[in-house]
Write a protein that binds this DNA or RNA. Structure first.
Lengths: 258, 258
DNA sequence: CGTCCCGTTGACGGCGCTCAAAACAGGTGG
DNA sequence: CCACCTGTTTTGAGCGCCGTCAACGGGACG
C-alpha cells in the first residue's frame, strides 16, 4: 500500500486523496504542510490552556486526553488511537476573521494531550488544514466521520459516568479494551495505570483496585503485568450491566442487545 | 435576512450556500431534499435502536438526547438547540457500500431524541446529505464546526460527571443556562424538570431538589415556576468549583471558549 | 372535589471516598 | 547479588455523601 510523507496508513489526508485522485503525484501535495513528529511515552503534546495552532493526526500509538479543575482534580476525557484527530478545537471555518478579537487565533486547548506509548503524529497548521478541507470534499467527509466517532465515544463515556456503579464502570472499561477484530484474543494490553483508570471512570485508585481484586476472586479476569486477561467474558458483560464502551463495529449491528 | 425553504436562519445548509453562491436561486437547490417538520413539546423524534435514515437540522426549540440502559436507567447526553444537528450517526462517507453487510444502511440511533419545546426541524436523508457534502466544501466546514462544538459540550459534561460533587454539578448546570449574549439577564428559562436535571447530572431527583433548596437558603438563587433566577453569580461560580459549562463572561478568559 | 404529577423534605443505609499502612516491582549503586 | 529508595498496587478501617424509601404539599386538570 502506498504511503505518503506522513507514513501513516490511516491518515485522513493521504488515504482520502489516494482514493479520490487519479494522479499519484497529487497524493501528497499536502506533503509540505505536514510535519511529522515522533514522541516517546509520557510526553506532553500540548497543555490545556495553551493556544491551539496545530491539528494533530495520530499515526501510531496512544494518546490520553485529560482535563483538570483548578484544584488539581483530573479527568481523562478519552484515549485516542491511530487514525484519530487531536487538537481540533481552533478550526474556525468561517467567522474567525469576522468576529472581532485578536485575529481569531487565540483559541486555547480545552484539554491536555499526553502520549501513553511511543507515538507518531502528523502536525498541520489549522489554516493549512482549513484550505485543504475547502478544496477536498473527500477529506472533509473523512474528518466528519472521525469527529462523529469521537462524539459517539464521548457519549458512551457520559452514559457510563452518569449511571453506572463502580463495578459496572470497571467491567465496561475492561471490555472496551477488546479490539474490534478480536475473535478470541482475551489477553488485552492495559495502557492505563490504576490511577488513570480511576481518573477515566470518575473513581479513586483504591476503588478501582478493589474492584479488580473482586473480579480476580470471582475468576473473571487475571492481571499479569501491564495486561488484563479476560477469563469469563459473558459474566463480565453481565456485570458491565448494559451497553459497553466498545466502539461499534461498522456495518454490523450497533447497540448489541446483550 | 433571506430564508430558504426550511425557514431556519441557522441552517447549516442554507446559510452556507447563501454565503458561497453568488446566484440567489442556487441558495435553495437543496429545497427538494429537505422536509420541514414541526413538533410539539414532548414528542419523540426518534428512538434509541431505531434505524437511522435521516439527519435533522434543528431550527427552533430544544431537543434532549437521552440514552437508556436495559434496566431502565436513563442518562441525558445533552440538549440541542437551534442550529445544531441530530441523528448524524449513520452518515458513512465511504465504506458503507464497500464493506459487506446489509447495504450498510442498518445503523441504529445510539440515543433517543425528544422535544422539550415546540420544535421546527429540517429532515434530510443521509444519502442526500452525503451528496451535498461532497459538492459543497462550505457546508462540510460548517458541519465540522458544529460537530466540534458538540464534542466540546460532551467533554465538559464528562468533566462535570467525572469529578464534581452534587452541589458543584448543579451550580455548573445552572450557570450553563446563561445565554452567550446575556449581559445581565439573570432570570433563566429552565427547560428541564428536576428529574431531567438529575438524569443529566448523574444524580437523583431528591439530591437535585435538596441542592436547589440549599442554594435557595443561601440566597444564591430563586426558583419561580419554570425559571431560575441567579441572585449571586459570583458565589454560585465559586460553588461550581472550576470550569463551568457556561460561556465565559466577557473580559475574563477561563478555559474553553466554545 | 378527586386524581395525577411534580417538587420537597425527612430518616436511614450503603457505596465509594478518605486516611493510613503494608506489599510489591523497578531502578540504582554498592 | 543484595541493600536501598521510589512509585505503584493492594488491603484495611472509618466515615460522609448521596441514593433509597417514604410521606407530604401544591398546582393542573378533568
Amino acid at each position: 500500500m502506498y504511503r505518503c510523507a506522513c507514513q501513516v496508513g490511516e491518515c485522513v489526508l493521504c488515504e482520502a486523496r489516494l482514493a479520490s485522485g487519479p494522479a499519484r503525484e497529487h497524493a501528497c501535495e499536502v506533503r509540505g504542510l505536514l510535519t511529522r513528529q515522533t514522541h516517546r511515552p509520557r510526553e506532553i503534546l500540548f497543555r490545556q490552556g495553551e493556544p491551539s495552532e496545530h491539528l494533530f493526526l495520530l499515526g501510531t500509538g496512544q494518546v490520553k486526553l485529560m482535563s483538570n479543575l483548578p484544584d488539581g482534580r483530573e479527568q481523562i476525557l478519552g484515549v485516542r488511537i491511530a487514525g484519530q484527530l487531536l487538537g481540533f478545537e481552533a478550526l474556525h471555518p468561517a467567522g474567525a476573521a469576522e468576529r472581532g478579537g485578536a485575529a481569531g487565533g487565540d483559541v486555547q486547548h480545552p484539554y491536555t494531550a499526553e502520549t501513553l506509548t511511543t507515538v507518531e503524529v502528523c502536525r498541520i497548521r489549522h489554516r493549512d488544514m482549513l484550505a485543504i478541507l475547502e478544496q477536498n470534499p473527500a477529506v472533509s467527509l473523512r474528518v466528519i466521520e472521525r469527529l462523529r466517532q469521537e462524539l459517539d465515544q464521548a457519549q458512551v463515556l457520559i452514559r457510563d459516568l452518569g449511571l453506572k456503579s463502580a463495578p459496572e464502570k470497571v467491567a465496561s472499561f475492561i471490555l472496551s479494551l477488546v479490539p474490534d477484530d478480536a475473535a478470541r484474543a482475551d489477553i488485552l494490553l492495559m495502557p492505563l495505570s490504576r490511577l488513570e483508570i480511576a481518573e477515566f471512570l470518575g473513581l479513586t485508585v483504591e476503588t478501582v483496585s478493589r474492584v479488580f481484586a473482586k473480579f480476580r476472586r470471582d475468576d473473571l479476569i487475571r492481571t499479569p503485568r501491564g495486561r488484563v486477561e479476560v477469563l469469563n467474558r459473558a459474566h463480565l458483560s453481565s456485570v458491565a450491566g448494559g451497553i459497553s464502551a466498545a466502539p461499534t463495529p461498522r456495518g454490523e449491528r450497533a447497540l448489541p442487545a446483550y
